[in-house]
Design a protein around this nucleic acid. Sequence first.
DNA 1: CACCATGTTCCTTG
DNA 2: CCAAGGAACATGGT
Length: 284
Amino acid sequence: MPELPEIEVLVRHLAPLLKNKTIRAVVVRRANVLLPDSPAGFKRTLIGARFVGLARRGKFLLFTLRQPRTGRRFTLVGHLGMTGRMYLQPADQPLPKHAAVVFALGKSRFVYEDTRYFGRLTLDTDGVARLGPEPLSAAFTADYLRCALRRSRQQIKVKLLDQTLVAGVGNLYASEVLFRAGISPKTSACRLTSRQVSRLWRALRTVLAEAIALGSTLPLDWAGRNEWDGLFYFGRAPGTPDHYRERLRVYDRGGEPCPNCGARIKRLVQASRSTFYCPRCQRA
DNA sequence: CACCATGTTCCTTG
DNA sequence: CCAAGGAACATGGT
């Protein structure tokens, strides 16, 4: 569920559910996801602490907690990697196969599950400090983008994945944004015209904002029947409506007709990752 | 068996 | 210093 819109919707969903809950116990089933924290130190800090707030920065979840023993507030940083999920479930339900870290909250528990274990749940905030501006904030201006892109010869699709340029764009929305802006993914960042950068800036904001708005309209009953909610997974459970894919115009649609002009959507590999684009709407 | 996968970091090579 | 390419992390789907 990994890019900015999905994290934003998840944060809005979890914030009221976690607020004021106290961590009674911590179970670490995959110590690697805590790195560089150690399980012992992690537990010492978190047991007894209470959730007071939750925010998003890029693809990171920022949990604010308060430890009543010391009165200290601190931040717990979450990242879902490629396959991470976070949800509450009743404490008497069986733990999922790939539960990496579990917080006992009394009648319920907070689960961080991750099939590939690429994500993190850690007290280390270094990753957050390295992020560029939030694309939906006032600080992210077309002028900022122009200045930043002028200095780079990288292909624009690859550049959009650079979290120090702008925080939260991943492989899926990078293709979607360039399609919306009508820009070829192969264009060198510094060769984009001023007008193209403006279109790119606008597309970043509209595509991400639309994805958040669409995601917010669906219920996220993680512990219940909608555990396989199609919104957040590109691959979905059999028999589940594919809401997620329906709103993607080019991603994973190689060979299908472009929704604008009908030309065949092409797939290409950049930085060992797939890019999808319309060769007619997005000319080099 | 082959290849693909929403992310990030590190290393090598040019 | 930069850009590109590959590997690593680890598991599952097709």
